[in-house]
């Protein structure tokens, strides 16, 4: 029941963002953020109920995964709004919350007993998901930057020119989301590795053997997932380093962000293919 309420408030949040972006309604900003916060509360409430019912945080079912994703997109929107005071990015992020909340309504909620109780597991999933949603925000803002840059250079003053914010704002959103995405994704990946180490300790084997065992059991899943998550971390680490140390023009940063995002996509394709 709370999920249908969450869906409703996310739709209301989205409608208010549309009102803000297309007819510049000021009150719509407050309402959009209010509804997004209510949706977040309802989603968290759903997770809490699941914890009480099952006695554990579930992460393997499509239901829980969808709720996590819905929360992550919403949190990303709220964080970027807090930093940039613009709701335009919500035009692209809130629909994901709507999609995943809808998906969770139809997803099975079968509980899996945890094989190994691990705190690392609880950290791994939220961090990786949040890291990925921030990378998505960074990708979206980069695409918007490139479109707006093109509009300004070619002197095309159509609807997108009017609706999209300034290049400066888009560059700031890209900057913030890329950095936050990198920190979260890296922390999530490290926690994933610690989880493997814990599994090894429980089975009284070395972490290397444990990794070998997992790789042998699910080769395509882990090879693609681990490789591309490492590539993603390294790529964005280099990008941030270059930006901080030598400076990177906003347009180039947008282009590199778009390229880097494909390694995030490939990580998830790896997960999808193996599942």
């Amino acid at each position: 029941m709370f999920i249908s309420y969450a869906l409703m408030v996310y739709i209301l949040a989205f409608m208010n963002i549309l009102l803000r972006v297309f007819i510049s309604s000021k009150i719509a900003v407050i309402l959009a953020v209010f509804f997004a916060l209510v949706g977040l509360g309802l989603n968290i409430h759903e997770i809490a109920i699941r914890y009480v019912l099952v006695g554990d945080f579930q992460s393997s079912t499509l239901f829980d995964f969808s709720i996590f994703l819905s929360i992550a997109f919403n949190l990303t929107f709220l964080f970027l709004f807090y930093r940039s005071k613009r709701v335009v990015i919500g035009l692209f992020l809130i629909p994901f919350s709507i999609i995943f909340t809808t998906l969770s309504m139809f997803a099975p909620t079968v509980e899996f007993p945890s094989t190994v109780y691990s705190l690392w597991r609880f950290g791994h999933l939220p961090f990786v998901i949040l890291g990925s949603t921030f990378f998505i925000a960074s990708f979206i803002s980069s695409i918007m930057y490139l479109i707006q840059d093109n509009n300004l250079r070619l002197k095309r003053f159509g609807k997108l020119y009017k609706v999209f914010p300034s290049l400066d704002t888009l560059n700031n959103i890209n900057n913030i989301s890329m950095r936050v995405g990198f920190y979260f994704f890296t922390i999530g990946s490290i926690l994933g590795f610690l989880w493997i180490v814990q599994i090894a300790e429980v089975n009284e084997i070395s972490w290397f053997k444990s990794l070998q065992f997992i790789l042998a059991a699910y080769p395509s899943f882990f090879i693609i997932k681990i490789s591309f998550s490492m590539i993603t971390c390294i790529y964005f680490a280099i990008l941030i380093l270059i930006k901080v140390k030598y400076g990177l023009p906003p347009k180039k940063l947008a282009m590199f962000t778009v390229i880097g995002f494909f390694s995030v996509i490939l990580t998830y394709i790896g997960v999808g293919v193996s599942l």
Partner: peptide
């Protein structure tokens, strides 16, 4: 107004 589409503030 054009400048405002490049620089936020």
């Amino acid at each position: 107004e054009l400048a405002k589409k490049i620089f936020d503030n």
